[in-house]
Amino acid sequence: MDTATIKIVAALISDETGRVLLVRKRGTRTFMQPGGKRDSGEDDIAALSREIAEELGCGIVPASIRPLGEFNAVAANEPGFFVQASLYRIDVTGEITPNQEIDEAIWIDPAAPPDVDLAPLTRDHVLPLAVATTSAANVD
């Protein structure tokens, strides 16, 4: 990918009712998945663990980590850029408390999102995937 692509790791976190956790970064209006850029030398899981700890003040349950794929979308907060996201379904341990650059965290029904600004990655890829995997889980 070219320099106009930001490579990130992102988390799909659901609660027991199937709601999905979204965050809004300070100074923005757009809700998105928790996660972010890898630091030099970090693999996906190390980066995601660090980002979740920094942004939400909690940890990842290692046995819960499930890769969901790589997805591309227009970047929500960086005009002219795209994101290439490695998406993981995870469970977290500890209390979720927005920290550092996160101003707000909300739980939404992925099948009926509220009227808020959603990042293209979240709107076009993550929420449909959350609906599909929740529906599949309910069939079992």
Score class of each variant (00 low, 15 high):
L68N: 01
G27I: 08
V116E: 10
A63C: 07
R50E: 03
L56T: 01
D39Y: 12
S14R: 13
I102F: 08
D124G: 07
T28D: 07
E16W: 09
V139F: 11
E54D: 13
R123H: 11
G36D: 02
K37M: 15
E70N: 12
E78A: 12
Y88L: 09
Q33C: 15
A47C: 09
P128L: 07
I45V: 15
T134C: 03
A63L: 13
T3P: 00
I106V: 15
E95I: 10
I65W: 08
D109L: 04
V131A: 12
V131E: 09
A11V: 04
T122M: 08
N72E: 15
P113G: 06
S64M: 11
T134S: 14
D140N: 12
P34Q: 04
E104P: 01
A85E: 06
T3H: 12
I13Q: 03
R38Q: 10
L21P: 02
F71Y: 14
G59F: 00
S49V: 02
S14F: 00
I52E: 01
A105C: 11
A47D: 07
A47M: 08
V126N: 03
S86N: 11
D117L: 09
A85W: 00
I52H: 02
N72T: 13
M1Y: 11
V23L: 09
I96F: 10
I96Y: 10
R50M: 06
G18R: 04
D140Q: 13
L129N: 03
V9E: 05
L127M: 10
I96M: 11
D115L: 13
R66G: 00
I6Y: 00
A136F: 10
A63R: 14
V20S: 02
V9N: 01
S49R: 13
D140R: 15
A53K: 14
N99A: 12
T28R: 12
D44R: 04
V9L: 05
H125S: 12
A105M: 14
K37Q: 15
A4E: 13
S14A: 13
E42N: 05
A111K: 08
A111G: 15
L129W: 02
P114F: 11
F81P: 00
